[in-house]
Amino acid sequence: MAHEYVPEVAIDREGNEHLVQGWQDDYFGGKMGFWLFMFTEVMMFSAMFLTLSYYYTLHPQDYTEASAHLNRLLGGFNTVILLISAWTMGLGLLKMRSGDVSGAKKFILATMFIAALFLVVKGFEWHEEYEHGIFLGHGHLIEEGYPLGKKLFYGMYFTMTGLHGFHVLIGIGLMIWLLKRINAGKVTPEHHILHFNIALYWDLVHLIWVFVFPYFYMIGAAHGH
């Protein structure tokens, strides 16, 4: 029982015709829907940043010391590659819009590769923290007398980088799906709302990292190791 859009007009009293917007193929509606969806993501991460700031207000000294300990090299590397991946994703969308489908696919693959690299680096970083006795339910974080502010800082560090990593993972999944849809001919230069929205999603993932990175890695940078 297909639900095809039948073009329809409404006629006003002067006899002018006005086109009726259907829900099918509503390009701007699709964009607006995805922007609204991104607000929910923003609110979720805002609530976590709020938690982080709440305890920063209580324990500024502990936070700075805990931050100084994190690996700025790996974190910084991830920041730069994620930045580049946002660029490749955007170029892929441009390729798609200009009609170059195979070029678009190459850029999507490049983005996926960088996203996977990001996760690998993240894994190394977590492993290094673990070696230093810092992990959820392990080492210092369950040690009596370890400063509370540090426990909270690292607790949020693993929560937020973890949930951000989860979003990266979802992003990779979405890009695989996008490639399948492109191969199936469902996403085309004339009909690319899915590509557009996944590119938006990827920018959002990058955007979150833009705040996660300084809040965790940089606030204690002046104190060095």
Binding site: L136, G137, L152, G155, F158, T159
Partner: peptide
């Protein structure tokens, strides 16, 4: 499940939050 601490007073978590 992971004891991140933010709601656990033993780790400095504040129930008011």
């Amino acid at each position: 499940y992971f004891g991140i601490g933010i709601f656990d007073p033993a780790k400095g978590g504040d129930p008011v939050l």
